[in-house]
């Protein structure tokens, strides 16, 4: 079982790597839009999450409101990953 703190640390680490920032500069409540992650960075981060947790994230870059996976903030990504892990 993967706990919430571990998922949050992984999400922050993965986002930080894409943003070329130290993980300490990505706050646990940060919004992705404010971090300035571009579209390729986003799909690379999702790939990294899938590889890390062996999940499949239902994300399509053409759907602005992302009905299946809320990628808007660190907490929403953590919650989404938790849900996907629980479903496997």
């Amino acid at each position: 079982m993967t706990d919430r703190a571990e998922i949050e640390a992984a999400v922050i680490e993965i986002l930080a790597r894409q943003l070329l920032l130290p993980p300490g500069e990505v706050a646990p409540e940060a919004r992705v839009e404010d971090l300035g992650l571009d579209s390729l960075g986003k799909v690379e981060a999702i790939f990294a999450l899938e590889e890390r947790f062996d999940i499949s994230v239902p994300f399509n870059a053409n759907e602005p409101d992302q009905p299946d996976f809320d990628f808007s903030s660190v907490p929403s990504i953590v919650a989404g990953v938790e849900r996907l892990i629980a479903a496997t």
Binding site: V43, I46, F47, F59, N60, A61, N62
Partner: peptide
């Protein structure tokens, strides 16, 4: 698929 731009 990896680019996440394909329609399902």
């Amino acid at each position: 698929e990896g680019l996440r731009v394909l329609s399902p």
